[in-house]
């Protein structure tokens, strides 16, 4: 049995919305193992995004325990939590979320900005991952000079440049055509094969074939869980 990468125990999350309390997550418990790839599916409002933000060390739960690689992340100070995000997590946001005034190369270097590596090392690391996602010849372009698929690749390169053990992706193919979406999913699959743990929120059932396990959420609870046959 592999080691556990993510361990959620009895997670509850309550928001206040217009004076009313909304329970976004209800007693969610989940284990994800190192090297696993998991898709999280569910309708809008089912709690997928809340779950992702809690796993992303961005949003503490109202109650429950969140451990990533054995670290109780919400016991860390704010600054250590920022360091944790930088070292352990690679985010691939919906709509790419690239910084528009930075080139593809600079966007990829962002997670390295606050590290103590030399500029040369940072440039080389970013160039390597851009080469890996097939964008070496476009690394000096601004995001608006790239296609949607290329921007997504830059976003993935940015997520993996720091070699984090866990990739969290939110609808990475949501705004891409089928062919490009498949290419991106193949890239995730490849990364997973290389040992990265991948957790992806998706609406697209076709994406699940690239991932090992699917979790379905409904009304803030885990309603179903199945292994995918790859």
């Amino acid at each position: 049995m592999s080691e556990i990468m993510i361990s959620l125990k009895d997670i509850n999350k309550t928001y206040k919305s217009m004076g009313d309390e909304v329970q976004a997550l209800k007693s969610v418990s989940l284990d994800i193992y190192k090297g696993e790839s998991v898709s999280v599916m569910g309708h809008s409002g089912s709690g997928k995004s809340t779950l992702l933000s809690i796993l992303g060390a961005l949003n503490p739960p109202s109650s429950g325990l969140v451990e990533i690689d054995g670290i109780d992340i919400y016991k860390l100070s704010q600054e250590r939590l920022a360091d944790f995000r930088r070292e352990y997590l690679g985010f691939v946001f919906q709509q790419f979320q690239l910084i528009p005034y930075l080139t593809a190369h600079e966007n990829v270097m962002l997670p390295l900005t606050t590290t103590k590596r030399s500029n040369r090392e940072k440039r080389e690391m970013a160039a390597q991952v851009l080469e890996r996602v097939g964008l070496k010849n476009k690394m000096n372009r601004l995001p608006n000079q790239l296609s949607g698929g290329e921007q997504e690749r830059v976003a993935i390169a940015r997520a993996i440049v720091n070699a984090p053990p866990l990739i969290l992706a939110d609808e990475p193919t949501g705004s891409l055509d089928t062919k490009t979406g498949d290419e991106i999913m193949e890239l995730f699959q490849q990364l997973n094969k290389e040992g990265l743990t991948v957790l992806m929120v998706t609406h697209n059932p076709d994406n699940t074939k690239y991932l090992g396990r699917t979790i379905v959420m409904k009304d803030g609870r885990l309603s179903d869980e199945r292994l995918n046959l790859n």
């Binding site: 992303g56 961005l58 704010q78 600054e79 920022a82 360091d83 944790f84 995000r85 930088r86 070292e87 985010f91 946001f93 979320q97 910084i99 962002l110 997670p111 900005t113 606050t114 940015r158 720091n162």
Partner: peptide
């Protein structure tokens, strides 16, 4: 706001 959110998610500290 969003840009700052991205920076924070990518590991920028408050001090950064």
């Amino acid at each position: 706001t969003r840009e700052i959110g991205i920076f924070r998610a990518l590991g920028f500290r408050k001090s950064h």
